[in-house]
């Protein structure tokens, strides 16, 4: 028996919008720790890891570890039927091949339940080792989204370089080149407007902008994004989900032949 009640149901709606174009089908894993997901895109270039900790739910009952295979496009269709202020409850019985999403309006005058068929998904869980990163950049998520969108109108790939001067995003395409440099800036009104660069050593890596743009669909989940870079590792683009956990996107770099 599984019953997870999320007062801020809009979080789950935003999570689905953030990942449904990257991943088609995925197993949601439910344990005492929380509601989580790890999935790769179909070409095995990117990986998404989601954690919504059990403490973040108003009610969290998960009698035994459960893995529920869902088509994310279908799940998104169902969650779009929930109002932004609705409380969402996820329910499943042991051994059932369906999951129920219950939507309650804030004043309890409307209650809806949507039952979705589950699917068997053969997915391999990958071990993600703890790593020391050469550079970690925290910046406003809207700024990062803007840069990725702007650069993708010029080129297909972005070179992200971190030096003492700041973080530089560069691209080149048929019509020309573009460089955007963001310097560390902590003299801002609100902490989420800051750009903070922690650099152990300079690093420069190349990534496909198509994926970066897909990751920025998580922007509504968090005012800031944290980008971790190391020369022999996938980049990590992390959006913290307030009080609950995170959504992390890992993207393998492109390398020169």
């Amino acid at each position: 028996m599984l019953e997870l009640r999320l007062v801020q149901g809009s979080l789950l709606k935003k999570v689905l919008e953030a990942i449904k174009d990257l991943v088609n089908d995925a197993n949601f894993d439910c344990s005492a720790t929380g509601f989580s997901l790890q999935a790769m895109d179909s070409s095995h270039v990117a990986l998404v890891a989601l954690l919504l900790r059990s403490e973040g739910f108003e009610h969290y009952r998960c009698d035994r570890n459960l893995s529920m295979g869902m088509n994310l496009n279908n799940m998104s269709k169902m969650l779009k039927c929930a109002g932004n202020d609705d409380i969402i409850t996820i329910k499943a019985d042991d051994g059932s091949d369906t999951v129920t999403f219950m939507f309650e309006s804030p004043n309890q005058d409307k209650i809806a339940d949507f039952e979705m068929k589950l699917m068997d998904i053969d997915s391999e869980h990958l071990g993600i080792p703890e790593a020391e990163y050469q550079a970690i950049v925290r910046m406003p998520s809207s700024e990062f989204a803007r840069i990725c969108k702007d650069l993708s109108s010029i080129g297909d790939t972005v070179v992200i370089s971190v030096t003492k001067e700041g973080v530089k995003f560069s691209t080149r395409g048929d019509i020309g080149t573009a460089n955007v440099v963001c310097r560390q800036n902590t003299t801002v009104d609100k902490p989420e407007e800051a750009t903070v660069i922690e650099m152990q050593e300079p690093v420069s890596l190349t990534f496909a902008l198509r994926y970066m743009n897909s990751f920025t669909k998580a922007t509504p989940l968090s005012g800031t994004v944290t980008i971790s870079l190391s020369s022999d590792l996938p980049i990590v683009v992390e959006y913290k989900i307030a009080e609950m956990g995170y959504i992390r996107f890992y993207l393998a770099p492109k390398i020169e032949d």
């Binding site: 095995h44 270039v45 869980h125």
Partner: peptide, 14 residues
């Protein structure tokens, strides 16, 4: 020319 690496060349199946 650049080549796209796979995520599977960094993370192993657990």
């Amino acid at each position: 020319n650049s080549r796209q690496k796979s995520i599977l060349s960094f993370f192993q199946k657990s």
